[in-house]
């Protein structure tokens, strides 16, 4: 075997770590370290996530005392789930549809913006970054209320469009479009920032290599730049879709009664409907399971490294 083949051949073993050679005491210390580091976060999750989740689950299978609205007893009653799915199917559908639309629009807006920030902005880059983050300085609800006023019937947008006869329904608020627009607006930074981060990290030389290897501007984007930014795109879509699917503020403030999402139902079942607790809990669980399943399929499809 030539010396060169040997250089190639040695690589097969590079994965093996030096752990086997470490002295015993050090190894014992090392073995506990990861668990120690996981402890605070793990405890936090246990107390504030796992316990409430179990609690929620037990509520979701409780039954109501007949004749005593608002009183429940421990039970294993899965009919709550059936009711949640049959009675509120439209709201589920709307949640997923609105979230998907908002994710799509946010992506369409965010990618060019992130691209411009990463490659074209020059000294404007930091100012653009601040502009993207600045909305976080005010509360989510306040911003949505502000949108309600901007889009209101006698507000500047609706009245201008109406004057030009460009608004078929006559109004913007109390429509599904307003809800999707609100969701898109509210979660846009969660889409921009991960995409920006992944584009910014991409080696400019690698993108140039696309051009050097006979790919024109668009082909280079499609075969090199976009695939390299996929981790950011996946993170961004998840960070937008998941909270958007569970959101109720936008539908509450910008939509009509016919535009309500699962979040609104859960909200009203918990706080406004007597005896709605088990239904609300079952709705929460169903929504969570649905989102988990979709995210799982999505990551299996796009999250692997074999993107092309």
């Amino acid at each position: 075997m030539s010396a060169l083949a040997h250089v190639g051949g040695t690589s097969g073993t590079t994965g093996a770590g030096p752990a086997g050679d470490a002295p015993p005491q050090e190894r014992a210390g090392r073995r506990w370290l990861p668990y120690l580091l996981l402890l605070p976060g793990g405890l936090w999750l246990l107390v504030f996530f796992v316990v409430p989740l179990l609690q929620l689950f037990t509520v979701s299978i409780q039954s109501q005392f007949p004749g005593y609205p608002g009183y429940y007893y421990r039970d294993v009653n899965f009919s709550n789930y059936l009711r949640a799915l049959t009675d509120f199917a439209p709201q589920f559908g709307r949640s997923l549809l609105f979230a998907a639309l908002a994710t799509f629009f946010a992506f369409a807006l965010a990618y060019p913006l992130a691209y411009a920030m990463a490659f074209k902005a020059g000294r404007w880059r930091n100012i653009m970054l601040i502009a993207v983050i600045a909305p976080f300085f005010t509360s989510f609800i306040l911003r949505t209320v502000a949108w309600r006023q901007i889009l209101a019937d006698d507000g500047p947008v609706a009245s201008t469009l109406n004057a030009l006869h460009l608004l078929p329904g006559g109004r913007i608020t109390e429509t599904a479009a307003a809800v999707v627009a609100g969701l898109t607006y509210n979660f846009l930074p969660f889409m921009v920032l991960p995409i920006y981060a992944s584009l910014e990290r991409a080696d400019a030389r690698v993108i140039e290599a696309g051009g050097d290897l006979y790919a024109n501007g668009f082909t280079t984007f499609r075969t090199v730049t976009l695939p390299m930014s996929m981790p950011g795109v996946i993170a961004g879509t998840l960070l937008t879709f998941i909270p958007a699917a569970g959101d109720y503020v936008n539908a509450e403030l910008l939509g009509s009664d016919g535009d309500k999402m699962v979040g609104n139902v859960i909200d009203s079942q918990f706080f406004r409907v007597l005896g709605g607790f088990p239904t609300a809990a079952a709705l929460s669980f169903t929504l969570m399971a649905l989102i988990l399943a979709m995210v799982f399929v999505y990551i299996r499809r796009f999250g692997t490294e074999e993107l092309l």
Binding site: V206, G210, V224, M230
Partner: peptide, 28 residues
């Protein structure tokens, strides 16, 4: 433009496509 020239570069930092296999890098 670069893609119009019968010229190829071996970059100082290699600049391989990180998302492609070695085979696909070379076949690019």
């Amino acid at each position: 433009r670069p893609y119009e020239r019968p010229v190829n570069t071996v970059f100082q930092s290699y600049a391989l496509f990180p998302h492609l296999t070695i085979r696909d890098n070379v076949a690019f």
